[in-house]
Structure formats: structure tokens, C-alpha cells
């Protein structure tokens, strides 16, 4: 009897003690908040390709991109470091889903502008979407003097519309873990004017890109654009290149590192593409990795918060 009573007493005293140990437990489980996956990539570009990421609402991202000459130019050109191709660009997050941007490249003195919209956003908690899906549409204009353009023949009318090209992409991807993000980019590049009859106005392509995060502030990126065969051909093709899928042109392959330092992201990479906008990268890459036609290059991204959206009310 005494034992049962002691047990009863023990339990009775224990009950309030236990309650004190877990006061928060009294409130019960919280509803998980809806939250989208963030930081699939360090910045809005993988290297040349658009990534799953957008600039946040109200944030401007200034991008300075630079490609040196080909590594195989040898010591007289300091392995390409004597040459430079530059793109200066700017992006802005109109909303958390919509981003716009424009840039100006030294390559063909090109102006480019684009918009990227997140249709679906991968969900971290509180919802079920497994992927992010973005749609990208861009436009570029070759602003070279007409005498310097490839297609110009003396006396020919130089229509501005001839200088325009368009790029459309669907970007579908997923951040599989803290360490790994992958994306696929089926796309179409349209050129208003092409230089030879062998070149298609519409070039179908498929891009793939990925990121492996090595440390908190360092990531390894790679991207590849596959251009469907028989769609384009350079006006002059070396004899041993005639059997290539797209003679005179190569698929774009880039590999590099993202280094993040607070407000800046430095991207250092190797690529066979000279241009830094979609039409140039996908349809006008001529460098061959196996021949050492590799550019060393970097992108610097610096963000500025121009407008701060009001915090969501509780």
C-alpha cells in the first residue's frame, strides 16, 4: 500500500515538473510555414547560362563579365591574357518572380535585353512543388558598323531588323541538396538574318547545367549547350571540320568556380564561348576545347538593394 502511495505521490509531483521542462510543448506543433527553396545557385548565371535564380524583388545586380583570349595563343599573347572581350550588364528584380536585364558586349558591339519569369518555385516546406520552372526570353542587337558586319555587301540596305536575334528558354531544375543543384534548358534561338543558306533561322538547342557546392562560399559549376545537328554552318569551314554536326561551330562548354564574398560573387571559369549572351553562346561558339581554344574568364556580380518590399504581415 505504502509503495503504491509513494508511486502516486511521485507521479503527482513529477507531472508539474515535466510540464515545466517542456513549456513550449504546451502550445502544440506549429503549422509549417510555406517556404520556397533558396540559393540553388549563387547568382542568376551558372556561367554564361541563366540559372534557376532570379534577383530578389527590388535588388539590382551589376555584372561585369570578361573573357580573355584563347589559352592556345601561347606566350606571345600571354596565353590569351592580352586580349579581352567584355560584357557590362545589369539586372533588376521587378518582383520575386520576374527579373529583367540588359547588357552591352564588346563582341559584335551587341546590346541585349531579357526577362526571366519563375512559373513554378521549388518548395522547401509547407507545399509540394519539387522543381523550379522559369521561362526566359531575350533579344539581342548586333550594333557593329555596317561595313564590319559579315553579311554586308556594298550598296546593300542595312535594315536594323536584320541585326536582331532572339532566344527563348525553359529552365527546369531542382536543388537536390545543399550540395547539388541541376537544371535543363531546352531552348530556341532565332536569327532574323543568317549569312548562308545552310544556316537555320531557328536553332533548337538543349542546355544542361549543374552546381556542386564545395564549401559555404565556394561552388563548382558546369554548363553545356547541345545544338541539334545540321542547323548551322560557318561560311568558311576547315576541311577536316566538314563532317561536324554543325560545321565551323562547336557546342558551348564551360566549367568554373563561384566564390562568394558578402555582396559580391566572383565567377572564375574556362569556356570555349567568346560571347556572353544567349545567341552568341549557343549559335556562334567556334572554340574547340580539344584544340585548346579555351578562354579563361570571370564574371563579377555586385548587388544593390534599390527598393525594399514591405515585409509580409504576420
Amino acid at each position: 500500500m505504502r509503495r503504491t502511495l509513494s508511486v502516486l505521490f511521485f507521479i503527482a509531483t513529477l507531472a508539474p515538473l515535466h510540464a515545466q521542462d517542456d513549456l513550449l510543448g504546451l502550445l502544440g506543433e506549429e503549422e509549417p510555414e510555406k517556404e520556397f527553396t533558396s540559393a540553388s545557385f549563387k547568382t542568376t548565371r551558372v556561367i554564361n547560362a541563366q540559372s534557376l535564380e532570379n534577383t530578389a524583388h527590388g535588388v539590382m545586380d551589376v555584372k561585369i563579365s570578361h573573357r580573355f583570349g584563347f589559352l592556345n595563343l601561347g606566350i606571345s599573347e600571354l596565353f590569351g591574357l592580352d586580349q579581352a572581350t567584355v560584357r557590362i550588364g545589369m539586372e533588376y528584380g521587378v518582383t520575386d518572380r520576374l527579373m529583367i536585364g540588359f547588357g552591352r558586349s564588346s563582341y559584335q558591339k551587341t546590346l541585349d535585353g531579357y526577362a526571366k519569369y519563375k512559373i513554378l518555385r521549388q518548395c522547401q516546406s509547407g507545399c509540394g512543388m519539387p522543381i523550379t520552372l522559369s521561362v526566359f526570353a531575350g533579344m539581342s542587337a548586333n550594333m557593329l558598323e555596317k561595313e564590319k558586319t559579315e553579311w554586308y555587301a556594298p550598296g546593300q540596305e542595312d535594315y536594323f531588323t536584320h541585326r536582331l536575334g532572339y532566344a527563348f528558354q525553359l529552365i527546369v531544375g531542382r536543388k537536390f541538396s545543399e550540395a547539388l543543384s541541376l537544371q535543363l534548358m531546352p531552348g530556341l534561338v532565332h536569327r532574323n538574318l543568317v549569312t548562308t543558306v545552310e544556316q537555320a533561322h531557328d536553332v533548337l538547342n538543349m542546355g544542361a547545367a549543374g552546381r556542386v557546392k564545395l564549401t559555404k562560399r565556394l561552388a563548382l559549376n558546369a554548363e553545356y549547350f547541345y545544338v541539334l545537328p545540321g542547323q548551322t554552318r560557318a561560311s568558311v569551314v576547315e576541311a577536316d571540320r566538314l563532317d561536324d554536326p554543325n560545321p565551323g561551330f562547336k557546342n558551348s562548354l564551360s566549367i568554373g568556380f563561384d566564390i562568394e564574398t558578402g555582396g559580391h560573387v566572383f565567377q572564375l571559369h574556362f569556356t570555349n564561348s567568346t560571347a556572353m549572351f544567349e545567341r552568341g553562346v549557343i549559335t556562334e561558339t567556334t572554340g574547340d576545347w580539344l584544340d585548346g581554344d579555351i578562354h579563361f574568364g570571370f564574371n563579377i556580380s555586385r548587388v544593390f538593394t534599390l527598393y525594399r518590399p514591405k515585409p509580409k504581415k504576420v
Binding site: 533558396s38 540559393a39 530578389a56 524583388h57 527590388g58 535588388v59 559555404k216 562560399r217 562568394e260 558578402g262 555582396g263 548587388v303 538593394t305 525594399r308
Partner: peptide, 11 residues
């Protein structure tokens, strides 16, 4: 700043 928030959580 949105980026600060991302870095706070991520890094």
C-alpha cells in the same frame, strides 16, 4: 537586404 537574409541562413 534580400541577399543578407540568404547569406544569414545559408552561410
Amino acid at each position: 537586404k534580400a541577399l543578407m537574409q540568404e547569406h544569414f541562413n545559408e552561410n
